[in-house]
Design a protein around this nucleic acid. Structure first.
Length: 334
DNA sequence: GATAATGATTGCGC
DNA sequence: GCGCAATCATTATC
C-alpha cells in the first residue's frame, strides 16, 4: 500500500507512520517521505501522536528527579576538596612537622595533580556537553518524522550524563589515589629527620638543666623555645619528652652534662646576675640536685643523701660537685 | 660497618 | 590532651 499511492484515510496514515517509525526512514525511499510530508492530515495526526506519547512518557518516573546523591561520589568530592585538589587552591598544606623544602616539593606535586585533574575534568565536561548537544539535535531531527516527548529527551540526556559521571568517578578515584600516594611518600619523608642545630640543642639543654626540678615547659615556654630554636612546638615537646626519659635512664652521663650547663649558667650568673632563671635561688644543676629523678637513680647512690653536698648553693662549683661524688663513691666502697 | 646518639612515632594510662 | 615508655628510623661518630 505504501509506496504505490498516498494514504487517504487517517488510519492508513497512522499505519504508515507507525511502520516508518518501526523501520526508521530509509534515505533512498524519498517518494514515501515526500508523500507523507505533503499529506493534508499529516500535521493533525502528528500532533495527536505527540500528545499520546507525552502522556505515556509522563507516567514513566523521571529518573532525574529521583536520583539520589551518589555517596561514593560525595566522599571523593569531599576528599578532593579537603586535599586542596578540587575547590579553592589551598596550597597543599602538609603537616606542621614537615620541613620547608619538603613542603614546597609537596605543594608543587599537589599543584601538578590539581592541574591535571582540572584539565581532565574540563575535557570530560566539554565532551559530555558536546555529546549531549549532538544527541539533542539528532532527536530534534528525528522529531520531524516520529513523535518524541520532551521528557524522553531529558531522560536520554540524563542517561548520557550518568555515563559521563561514571567516567568522572574513575577520574576522581585515580586522583585520590595519586594524592594518597603523594601524601604517604611525604609523611614517610617526615621520618627522615635532621638533627637540630648545635645552637638549638644548647638552648633546649639550657632550659632543661635550668629547670631540672620541673622540666615541663609551659605552652608559652615551648612556643618561646620553638622560636629561639627555629623548630615547631611539637618538636620542642618531643625533645623534652625524649630528654626526660633519657635523663632518667642515663643519670651518670646526664649529671656530667648538667655540670657543664651549670658551669655555663654560673658564668652567666657571675657576669649578668640571675636573669633568665625563674628558679633564681637554684642556678644550673644545683636545681638538678633537688630534682626527683636523682633521688633514686644515681649509680652508687641508691638513696637520697640526707646531708647536703659540701657547696654553697648560690655559687655552685662543678669541680666541687665532682669531688663530692667521688667522696660518696669511696664511702660506698669502704 | 658497628655502635651511639637523636628525633619521631606509637600505644597506653591518667 | 599530656606525659611516659618502648620502639623505629635516620644521622653521627668511631
Amino acid at each position: 500500500m505504501v509506496g504505490t499511492s498516498s494514504p487517504s484515510t487517517l488510519s492508513e496514515l497512522l499505519n504508515e507512520v507507525l511502520k516508518i517509525n518501526e523501520q526508521t526512514l530509509d534515505d533512498n525511499d524519498n517518494s514515501k517521505k515526500q508523500a507523507l510530508h505533503v499529506h493534508p492530515m499529516r500535521q493533525a495526526l502528528f500532533d495527536v501522536l505527540c500528545e499520546t506519547k507525552e502522556k505515556t512518557v509522563l507516567s514513566v518516573r523521571n529518573p532525574v528527579d529521583e536520583a539520589p546523591e551518589d555517596p561514593q561520589l560525595m566522599r571523593l568530592d569531599n576528599m578532593l576538596v579537603a586535599e586542596g585538589v578540587a575547590g579553592p587552591d589551598k596550597g597543599g598544606t602538609l603537616g606542621s612537622d614537615a620541613s620547608g623544602g619538603d613542603q614546597a616539593d609537596y605543594r608543587q606535586k599537589l599543584h601538578q595533580i590539581r592541574v591535571v585533574y582540572n584539565d581532565e575534568l574540563r575535557k570530560y565536561e566539554d565532551a559530555c556537553a558536546e555529546f549531549t548537544q549532538h544527541v539533542r539535535s539528532l532527536l530534534k531531527d528525528q522529531s520531524q518524522v516520529r513523535p518524541i516527548a520532551h521528557k524522553e529527551i531529558e531522560r536520554m540526556v540524563y542517561i548520557i550524563q550518568k555515563k559521563f559521571s561514571g567516567i568522572q568517578v574513575q577520574l576522581k578515584q585515580s586522583t585520590c589515589e595519586a594524592v594518597m600516594i603523594l601524601r604517604s611518600r611525604f609523611l614517610d619523608a617526615r621520618r627522615k629527620r635532621r638533627n637540630f642545630s648545635k645552637q638549638a640543642t644548647e638552648v633546649l639543654n639550657e632550659y632543661f638543666y635550668g629547670h631540672l626540678s620541673n622540666p615541663y615547659p609551659s605552652e608559652e615556654a615551648k612556643e618561646d623555645l620553638a622560636r629561639q630554636c627555629n623548630i615547631t612546638v611539637s618538636q620542642v615537646s618531643n625533645w623534652f619528652g625524649n630528654k626526660r626519659i633519657r635523663y632518667k635512664k642515663n643519670m651518670a652521663k646526664a649529671q656530667e652534662e648538667a655540670s657543664i650547663y651549670a658551669a655555663k649558667k654560673n658564668a652567666h650568673v657571675t657576669l649578668g646576675g640571675m636573669a633568665g632563671n625563674p628558679y633564681g635561688m637554684l642556678p644550673g644543676a644545683a636545681a638538678g640536685l633537688l630534682n626527683p629523678y636523682q633521688m633514686t637513680s644515681i649509680p652508687g647512690q641508691d638513696t637520697l643523701h640526707m646531708g647536703m653536698p659540701p657547696f654553697d648553693l648560690s655559687v655552685y662549683n662543678p669541680q666541687l660537685m665532682a669531688q663530692y661524688q667521688q667522696q660518696m663513691e669511696n664511702n660506698d666502697k669502704s
